[in-house]
Design a protein around this nucleic acid. Structure first.
Lengths: 144, 144
DNA sequence: TATACTATTGTAGTAATTCCAATTTTGAAA
DNA sequence: TTTCAAAATTGGAATTACTACAATAGTATA
C-alpha cells in the first residue's frame, strides 16, 4: 500500500501541511476507521506504532486538519470531540443507548430558514439523537 | 408577579419535580433570559439572591429539567453547555467571531434523510456557524 | 554544512463537570 | 403539631478534556 502513503502525502501537501510521519498516520487512521474517533481513540491506536507519540501532537494535528479543511470536528454531546473525514454534507446520529455515531444522508441546503438576515452562514450541522437498531433490540429483549 | 410564581410552580409540578426555591429560581431565570445561559451565568445571577447556592445544585437542577423535558441542552461548541427553554423546534446559530448564539426558525421535520432505517429518531438539532451582523461590521471596519 | 523554520514532546495548568458524604428541607403520616 | 423517611442542597474533592509553554528534534534551503 505505498499507493496509500503517496495519496496521503499528496493530500497533506495540497492542503499546505508538511507530510510528517505523525500527520500521515493520523490521517490514515481517520480514513481507515470510518467511525468518529476521539483524540484518545487515535492516540491509543497509534501509540503502538509510534511509542514516542504525544497526546499534544494528536491535538495539534487534528487542529491543523480542521483548519486546512481535511477533517471536521463533531461535538454531538458534551463529552469528547470527535473527528470525521467524510467531507460531503451529511448528518450525524447518536444513539442514546450505546453512544455510537452513524452518518446519514441529508441535504440541509434545500431547507429554508428565517431569522438570520444579514448573517453569514458558513457551516451547517445536523445532529439527531435516538436509538440505533441494536439498542432497540436490546430494549425489546428486556421487556419480555 | 405572584402569577409567575404560580405558573412556574405548576410547570415544575406537572413535570413531576418538587417546586423547591432553587428550581423555581433557575426556571424563572431561563424563561426571563431568552438567551442561552451557561451554568456559570445562572450560578452568578442567582447567587446574589441565594447566597448559599451551590454550583452542584445548578447542575442537578438543569439535569432534572432536561430529563423532564422542561429545557434542552445546547452543545454547539466544545465549551460549556448552554440551556434553552424555547421548546418549539428551532435552529441555533453561533457566531465564530463573538460566540453569541441566535435562535432561528427552521422546520427540520419536512426534510428527507436516508440511512437511518430501523433507527428511532427522537431529537433533531440544527447548528449553523458563521458571522453575525455585528462581527461582519467589525471586519469591514478593520479592512479600511 | 549551517541556519532558520516547523513539528513534536512532555509537563504543568485550566476549566467544566461529576462524585460523594454530610446537612438541610420537604411532604406525608401519626 | 410532631415525627420521620425521602428528597434536595451543599461544598469540597476528584476527574477529565483540553491548552499553554518551553525544550528538543526534525526538515528544507542556501
Amino acid at each position: 500500500m505505498d499507493d496509500t502513503l503517496a495519496r496521503l502525502t499528496r493530500e497533506l501537501a495540497e492542503s499546505g501541511l508538511r507530510p510528517s510521519y505523525q500527520r500521515i498516520k493520523v490521517l490514515e487512521y481517520l480514513h481507515e476507521k470510518k467511525g468518529h474517533p476521539t483524540v484518545d481513540d487515535i492516540y491509543h491506536a497509534l501509540a503502538v506504532e509510534i511509542p514516542t507519540l504525544s497526546r499534544t501532537t494528536v491535538y495539534n494535528t487534528l487542529h491543523s486538519f480542521v483548519e486546512a479543511g481535511l477533517a471536521r470536528m463533531v461535538h454531538i454531546d458534551g463529552a469528547e470531540a470527535r473527528y470525521d473525514v467524510t467531507l460531503h454534507p451529511h448528518g450525524h446520529f447518536q444513539c442514546v443507548g450505546c453512544g455510537s455515531i452513524t452518518n446519514f444522508s441529508i441535504n440541509i441546503d434545500v431547507l429554508a430558514f428565517e431569522g438570520l438576515n444579514r448573517f453569514e452562514v458558513r457551516e451547517k450541522d445536523v445532529y439527531f439523537r435516538g436509538l440505533c437498531p441494536n439498542c432497540i433490540g436490546q430494549q425489546d429483549l428486556r421487556r419480555e
